[in-house]
Each structure stands twice: as structure tokens, then as C-alpha cells.
């Protein structure tokens, strides 16, 4: 056994550096499966958008792009605070790590709040696909475009899956907060903070793509 071995390093690793690299690689492999997961939905979106461009164009105008922009701002801010949480953990600053984790969680919850409000307005506007779906009362040309439900189905599937990932992210943050509070992390060992950060940034990246795809389908006319 090498002399760098301590209780923080699991017995299958040579040292902490190798352990950290293995952990990071493991998270990246998971994130690749996530790319393919969301990739399937983005593919479905692309195929139908090419097939029904007019439907997508008009349906997307019924999403509130201001809310979408605000939510993107919130998520980008949360990524910055997450990066700061990892930064603080790297420097072994326990209190600061906890503060940034909480700020990240507050921003994540704010995102979900705005998202929930948007879902509610879609419900009151009868824009949830199903028997009560009705775009005609909002836009008289809707009758000519019978496939607008498709856009909203994809909207709810994509943003719903994303919101579910945010919930998991908030769960991870809670767990990280407790572990940090109990002093489980140090300059030498902060891998969970680092990889939870990777997950959080990944969920942010998914939104970076969902936002223009769903909210910004050519608003010039």
C-alpha cells in the first residue's frame, strides 16, 4: 500500500487522485446516457418540427418567452453558484460550501416555481394535450393547423423530464448539504460535491437547448 493511502481512499484505488478521476469518469459516463435520453426527445422534436413547421411556429408563440428567459437566467445563476460551491469545497471552506449549496437550491426551487406557474397557465388556457385541448379560443387560425397538440406534447415531455431532473438535483443538493454540515468533505476529499456539480451543470445545458427550441421558434412574424 502506498503511503498516500488513508481512510478517505477506497481500497481499490492507488490514491486519492486516481479515485477522483474514476469518480469523475463515472459521472461522465452516466451523463452520456443522459445525453442519449434527452437526445431521443430532441430527435422526435426535430423530425416533427421539419414535418409540421407552421404548427410548431404558431404553437410556440403561446409559450411565454419572458418567463422562459427569466428561468434561463435563474438556471445560469444557479450554475455559477454551483461552481462556487465546488470551488469552496476544493479550498476546504465548509461554511462557504454550505452557503453556496443553499443558494443553488433556492435558485433551483425558483426555477421550478416559475415552471409550475407556466404549467398552470397552460392548464387554464386549455393547452395541455388531451380531450380538453383547445387552441382555437386563443388563435382563430388554429383550426387550419390540426397538429398543434404535437408541439405541446413535446413541450410537456421535454420540460417535464427536465423538471424531474431538477427535482433529483435538489435531492442531491440536500444530501450534499447534510454531508458538508457533518464535515465529511475536505481539501483532500470533495468528490461528491464535484460530481453533483457536474450533474447540475448538465441539467443546465439541457435547458440551454430546450429554451430556444421550445420558446424561440422564429418570433419575427
Amino acid at each position: 500500500m502506498s503511503e498516500t493511502h488513508s481512510s478517505l481512499v477506497a481500497h481499490q484505488f492507488d490514491d486519492g487522485v486516481q479515485q477522483k478521476q474514476a469518480t469523475t469518469l463515472g459521472m461522465w459516463v452516466f451523463l452520456i446516457t443522459e445525453i442519449m435520453f434527452f437526445g431521443g426527445l430532441i430527435l422526435a422534436y426535430t423530425v416533427y418540427r421539419i414535418k409540421y413547421p407552421e404548427e410548431f411556429h404558431h404553437a410556440s408563440k403561446h409559450l411565454d418567452y419572458v418567463m422562459g428567459t427569466v428561468n434561463t437566467c435563474i438556471l445560469l445563476c444557479s450554475s455559477l453558484t454551483m461552481a462556487f460551491a465546488v470551488h469552496a469545497a476544493q479550498e476546504g471552506k465548509r461554511k462557504l460550501t454550505m452557503i453556496f449549496i443553499v443558494v443553488t437550491m433556492v435558485l433551483g426551487a425558483a426555477f421550478l416555481g416559475v415552471k409550475g406557474w407556466e404549467y398552470y397557465t397552460k392548464y387554464t388556457d386549455h393547452l395541455i394535450p388531451g380531450p380538453n385541448y383547445d387552441l382555437n379560443h386563443l388563435w382563430e387560425g388554429a383550426g387550419l393547423l390540426p397538429k398543434t397538440q404535437l408541439f405541446f406534447s413535446l413541450y410537456f415531455a421535454m420540460t417535464g423530464l427536465h423538471a424531474f431532473h431538477m427535482l433529483i438535483g435538489l435531492g442531491l443538493m440536500t444530501w450534499l448539504f447534510v454531508k458538508t454540515k457533518r464535515g465529511r468533505f475536505s481539501k483532500e476529499y470533495f468528490n461528491p460535491v464535484e460530481v453533483c456539480g457536474l450533474y447540475w451543470h448538465f441539467v443546465d445545458i439541457v435547458w440551454i437547448f430546450l429554451f430556444p427550441l421550445l420558446y424561440l421558434v422564429d418570433r419575427s412574424h
Partner: peptide, 19 residues
């Protein structure tokens, strides 16, 4: 390290193949 570069790049390449 380069292993992470390969992993991240592979994710992107497979997404491009899918699309």
C-alpha cells in the same frame, strides 16, 4: 485529463449520429 475529453466528446459524437 484526456479520458474525460474522450468521454465528453463521445457523448456529443453519438448524439450527432442519432440525429
Amino acid at each position: 485529463n484526456r479520458l474525460i475529453w474522450v468521454a465528453a466528446g463521445a457523448g456529443f459524437v453519438w448524439l450527432v449520429i442519432l440525429l
